[in-house]
Design a protein around this nucleic acid. Structure first.
Lengths: 352, 352
DNA sequence: TTGACAACATTAATCGTTTAAGTTAATTCA
DNA sequence: TGAATTAACTTAAACGATTAATGTTGTCAA
C-alpha cells in the first residue's frame, strides 16, 4: 500500500500529543498505567496511536525506569535437544510475562561465559537463567549480586547451598535406574560420559556409586567421555574391549547412550540382549531408537518453566529467601536395559 | 570483598569525567571511537573506568545512536536438534560481531509470529533472521521494510523472488535421494511428513515428484503428517496397513524417519531390509540409529552462519541488492535405505 | 461564599550516552 | 611573522519515555 511512503521517522509520544493538543505526559499515562487520565482521553490517544502507527520504544522507557523487560538465558549447547526443550520451557513463561529472552551459548567455556555475562549487564537484563559452564568460579553469585542482577541457576549449581536453583533430581534418578539394573541381575555396571566437571555430573556419579555400594557391587567402573554420541561410541568401544567388560552401561545422558548402542552394534553385540545400555533425560530420539532406550525422564520443559517462574518471582521480590526446586525424575523402562527382552513373554512398549 | 558495600549506584561516564576533571564527552570519545582524545587521556580514562567498575549502558547509547546491537532470531521450534544447530551457527557469527540475539519461538503460529515481530520492533533490533511460520502473509517483507528492519529469510521464503534468503537446496537434495532409491529398484515410493505449508515443504515435494516422474513412477503417494516422530509413526503405520504399501518411504526429515522406523518395527518388519526409510537434515540421532539412517545432509550450522553473515552485510549496506544463498546438500547413504544390506545379501538388484 | 477535595492535565527534570559545533592553544607553513 | 591548520577538549542539545511536583478545573458540603 504505502511501501516507500514517509521518511519513516519514528512516531513518538510527542507526535500523538501534538495531534491531540495535549501533553506527552498525558499520552504516556493513557497508553501505560491507565490511571491519571480520563477514559475519553485514553480512547482518543489509543485511536491516534493506532492511526499514526506509534511504536513503543522500550529502550527509551527502560532508560527512565530501569526495567528492560529482557532476561538472559545462558547455556552451554543447543545440539542436544534436551536443552532445546529446556529453553522452550523458559521461553514459554518469560514470554507470558511479556518479556523476551536473549539466548547465549557459552560452549561450556567459563571464560566465554564471563564475557557473555558482561554483555548481559550492559544490556541491563532484568534477570538471568544460568546453566554454569564447568570451571565457573564459585564467587559468581556474589558478583552477580553486586551487579544487581537476579540469577537462577539451572541444572547445575555453583554452590550447594546458596542461590536460587532449579534442577532435576539427578541423584535419585540414577539411583533408581541402577537399582533396576541390579534387580535385573547385573553385577558389573559401568558409568559412561560426564567428562565435564559440574554439579550435575557429580550428582549422577554420586547416585551411581550409592546404588552400587548398597548392593556391594564394584562402583569404580567409571569412564569419563564427552557427553555426546561420539563420547558414547568411544567410551563403549573402550569398555567392550577391556579384559573384563561390564554387562550394563549406565550412560550420562541419552546422547551418550545412543552412541554407546551404536558401538555395541559395531562390536557385533545386540544392545538390550547381550548388554544393557541406559540413558538419561528422555529425549525423543531415545523412544524411537531400536531397541528403545531405557532412560530417566527429567522433564526438561518443566524444569525450564520452573526456572522461568522462579526468576519472575525473584525479580518481583529481590529479598525473598532462596528457593531450590528439585523436579522429581521418573524411570522409563523400555528395551535397551534388557528388561523386556529378558522376560520375553511380555510385549513391552515401555512407559512403566 | 565488597559484597554488599555501596548502594550500587551505576557508574556513568560523568563519574569518570568528574574524577579526572574532564568532560563526559571526552570520556565517551576515549572509551569508544578513539579519535578526538590524546593517548594519554585515553589511558587515564580506561584506568579510572576499570577502577570504578564502569559498565557501558548500551540502552542509553542505542537511544542516542539508533544502533541496538541486537538481532532477533525467529523460528518455529527448538525440539528438533536441527534447529538447535541452526541457531548455534547464527549465534556464532552474530556473537563475533559483538551483537547478541533474541531467540523467539513462533510455535509455527503466524499470529504469534506477528506479535513477536512487534516486540522486536519495540526493542529496535538491528535486524532479523526469520524462518516464517506457515500462513505468514506474503506482504511481510514490505511491512518489515516499512518498519526499517532488515530481514533474512531462513529455510523458508515468503516470496520466491524477493528478499534475502538462505536455505538448503531441498529440491535437488530430495531428487538425488529419490534417484538413489529408484536405482535400488524401488518402484513404489511414498513421501511422508510435511503437513505445514511453507516453501521448504513445497520444495521437497517438488523434488520428490520430479524424480519419480522422470522414472515414470507414480508420484502421488504423499502422506502429510506432523513433521516430528509421532507424525512419522502414525503416517508409516497408515502406509503399511494400506492395501498396496510402498517399498520405500522418503521422509520429510530425520525425526519423521525415526518415527517411521519405529512404526515399521512395530509392524514386525525390519527397516532397511523389508522396507527402505530415509530422512532429511542429518541430525545426530540419525547416525546413531539402527539401522543407521540414510539421509540428506543440509549443513544446518553452515546455513545458520550464512544467514548471520548475510544479515550483517545487509545491516551494513541496506541498499545492497538481494541475495539468495542456496547451500548445497549431500546424500548420505547409510543402512536404512537398504543399499548396503541389499548389495550384501541380494544379487537381484544388480549394480552398485 | 468559602474551603476542601477529587479528577484530570501539565511542567520540567531525568535516565546515560553521543555528537555537531565551538573554543583554546600549540604547531605548521609560506 | 602571522595566517592557517590541527589536536585536544568542552558545551549543550539531543534520543524518547516516565514521573514527581504542580496547576487548573469543577463539585459539593457547610
Amino acid at each position: 500500500m504505502k511501501s516507500t511512503s514517509d521518511p519513516a521517522r519514528r512516531i513518538k509520544l510527542g507526535d500523538i500529543a501534538q495531534r491531540l493538543g495535549i501533553s506527552t505526559a498525558a499520552v504516556s499515562m493513557a497508553l501505560r498505567g491507565g490511571s491519571g487520565v480520563s477514559q475519553a482521553t485514553k480512547q482518543r490517544v489509543e485511536a491516534v496511536a493506532q492511526e499514526l502507527g506509534y511504536v513503543y520504544d522500550r529502550g527509551a522507557a527502560r532508560l527512565r525506569t530501569g526495567q528492560s523487560n529482557t532476561v538472559g538465558v545462558v547455556i552451554g549447547t543447543l545440539s542436544n535437544s534436551f536443552f532445546g526443550e529446556l529453553v522452550c520451557g523458559v521461553d514459554e513463561i518469560i514470554g507470558e510475562a511479556r518479556k523476551i529472552s536473549f539466548l547465549l551459548n557459552t560452549r561450556e567455556d567459563a571464560e566465554r561465559q564471563k564475557e557473555l555475562l558482561v554483555r548481559m549487564r550492559e544490556q541491563s537484563v532484568d534477570g538471568l537463567i544460568l546453566c554454569p559452564a564447568p570451571g565457573t568460579r564459585s564467587d559468581l553469585l556474589e558478583t552477580m549480586h553486586d551487579w544487581g542482577i537476579p540469577v537462577i541457576q539451572m541444572l547445575r549449581s555453583v554452590s550447594d547451598t546458596k542461590g536460587d536453583f532449579v534442577s532435576a533430581d539427578y541423584q535419585t534418578g540414577i539411583e533408581t535406574l541402577c537399582a533396576h539394573l541390579i534387580r535385573l541381575g547385573h553385577k558389573r555396571i559401568a558409568f559412561l560420559g560426564g567428562n565435564l566437571d559440574h554439579s550435575a555430573t557429580r550428582q549422577r556419579i554420586k547416585g551411581f556409586k550409592a546404588a552400587l555400594d548398597r548392593a556391594q557391587l564394584p562402583s569404580d567402573l567409571i569412564v569419563k567421555t564427552a557427553s555426546d554420541s561420539s563420547g558414547g561410541r568411544d567410551g563403549a568401544a573402550k569398555l567392550l574391549s577391556s579384559e573384563n567388560p561390564p554387562t550394563a552401561i549406565a550412560c550420562f545422558n541419552d546422547r551418550v547412550a545412543l552412541g554407546a548402542m551404536a558401538a555395541v552394534r559395531a562390536a557385533g553385540l545386540v544392545p538390550g540382549r547381550d548388554i544393557a545400555v541406559t540413558g538419561f533425560d528422555n529425549i525423543n530420539a531415545g523412544a524411537e531408537a531400536y531397541p528403545a532406550l531405557t532412560t530417566v525422564e527429567t522433564h526438561a520443559r518443566d524444569i525450564g518453566r520452573e526456572a522461568g517462574r522462579l526468576l519472575l518471582r525473584r525479580i518481583e521480590g529481590p529479598t525473598m529467601s532462596n528457593e531450590r526446586i528439585i523436579v522429581p525424575t521418573r524411570l522409563i523402562i523400555r528395551e535397551s536395559c534388557g528388561a523386556t527382552l529378558a522376560s520375553r513373554d511380555i510385549e513391552g512398549t515401555g512407559e512403566t
